[in-house]
Design a binder for these strands. Structure first.
Lengths: 204, 204
DNA sequence: GCGAAGTGTTTTACTTGTGAAACACCTGTT
DNA sequence: AACAGGTGTTTCACAAGTAAAACACTTCGC
C-alpha cells in the first residue's frame, strides 16, 4: 500500500477486493476519478507525499500504486460483460479454468489454479452446479475426491462470453498503441516472474 | 477477467478482493504459485486458451491478466508490514490520505480520495476512532458534516509505517532494474490516464 | 418563513470470502 | 488388521464490504 499510501485506491490501495452482490468490486467503487491537473491520480498522490515527506523515495508508489489502480479500474470494466451473463468474475474464473484445461478438475485443483481458498471454491461450485453449468462425479478409487466438469450449457456459456470479453478488453486497452502494449506486457511479465518466485515461495 | 479467464487469479481474475480477518486478501490466497515451465503463470494460461480457441486474440490477457496477478501478489506482500502494525490496508489508506493531504477531511472526501463507498468509510472511521488514531469534530456551519483528523498517535503511526512500507516495496520491485522500473511506471501511467478518462467517466 | 428537494452520514440487510475445525477417507506401519 | 497420521472437501463462525433506505440537516423557491 505504501505505494501511494494514503489513498487506498489513489495509490495502491483500492485494487478491488470483494465483490458484493451485483455491485462493484469491494473497495473499488472507483467513483468518478476527480479530474486531476497533471498526470493520473497516482501522480497526484505521489506529489502530495513528496510535500510532507520530501526525504522519502516515492519510486515504488509509481509502479505499485499504478498497478493496483489499473487493476481496480480494469476489473470493474471487465465485470460488465460478465454481469450481463449473470456471473461474477470468480465464478467465471472457475468455468474458464475448466474450459481452458479441457478436462475434469478436482476442487483443490480449481482452488490452486484459481488462487482462491478451498472454502470459496466449494461455495462457487455449489452455485454453479445449481445453475447447471457444472457437474460433479466422485472418484471411484478415492472417495474423498470429486471431479468437476463443465456441462454442455456451461461450455457454451464460456464460449459465448470469452470473445465478448476479449473484445471488450481490447477496446479498453486501445488507448495504448500496439508497441506500448507489447512493451507493457513484456515488462509486467518480467516483474511477475520475479514476484511469483519471490513472494510465492514464502519469505521476504 | 477474460484476460486469462479461467484461472481467476491465473490471468486477471483474482486480483484480491476482500480482506477478511487477518488472512490474505479475498480471492487472493495466492497460494504457492505452481512452478511453471516457461514464463509466468499468465503465459501458461494464455497458452492453454490458444489450444482450445486458436482463433481468439489473446493479446489483452497478456496485459490485463498480468496487471491483475501482479496486483494480487503485491497487495499480499504489502500487507505484511501493515499487519505488523495491526492495520488493514483500507484502514491505512484512510490514515495515509489524512497524512498526505495535511489537513482535515470530511468522510465523503475520504471516500472519494480512497475510492471506497461511504458506508465503508464510516465503518473504518469508527474503528480508527476507537483505537485513538483519528479524531472527529463537527462542522459548526453545517451540522451534517464531520471533520476528521489524525491524532498525534495516528500521525506517528503513519510516519513510522510509511518508510518501512516503501522500503519493503522497493525490495519487492528490486527484480526489475532501474530502467525497467522507469519504463514500467511510464507505461502504466499512460494506460491509467486512458482508463481513468474512459472508465471513470461513465460509458464503456 | 415554510415546505420541497438536495446533500452528508449512518444504519440495515445481505453477500461473499476467510481460517480453522470437522468430516470422510486413504495409506503406511507395525 | 488396526491405528496414526495425512489429504480432499465441507461446514462454521465471523469479518468487511455493498446498495439502498433512513436520518439529520441545509438551502432554495415561492
Amino acid at each position: 500500500m505504501t505505494a501511494g499510501s494514503g489513498g487506498a485506491g489513489a495509490t495502491d490501495g483500492a485494487v478491488g477486493r470483494t465483490v458484493t452482490g451485483t455491485g462493484s468490486p469491494d473497495g473499488v467503487p472507483v467513483g468518478p476519478p476527480p479530474p486531476v491537473d497533471g498526470g493520473d491520480t497516482v501522480a497526484k498522490v505521489v506529489r502530495q507525499w513528496r510535500v510532507v515527506h520530501p526525504e522519502l523515495d516515492t519510486g515504488p508508489m509509481e509502479i505499485i500504486g499504478r498497478v493496483n489502480r489499473c487493476a481496480a479500474l480494469l476489473q470493474q470494466a471487465e465485470d460488465a460483460p460478465l454481469r450481463r451473463a449473470g456471473l461474477t468474475r470468480p465464478e467465471f474464473d472457475v468455468l474458464g479454468t475448466l474450459r481452458r484445461t479441457g478436462h475434469e478438475l478436482t476442487p483443490s485443483e480449481i482452488a490452486r489454479e484459481t488462487f482462491s481458498s478451498g472454502a470459496a471454491v466449494t461455495k462457487r461450485l455449489k452455485q454453479l452446479t445449481e445453475r447447471g453449468l457444472v457437474e460433479r462425479r466422485g472418484d471411484d478409487r478415492d472417495r474423498r475426491v470429486a471431479h468437476v466438469r463443465l456441462t454442455d450449457a456451461g461450455r457454451e456459456l464460456v464460449d459465448t462470453i470469452i470473445p465478448e470479453q476479449l473484445g471488450y478488453e481490447s477496446a479498453v486497452l486501445s488507448g495504448l498503441d500496439a508497441e506500448g502494449q507489447r512493451a507493457l506486457a513484456a515488462l509486467l511479465g518480467g516483474l511477475l516472474i520475479q514476484l511469483e518466485g519471490r513472494l510465492g515461495s514464502s519469505h521476504l
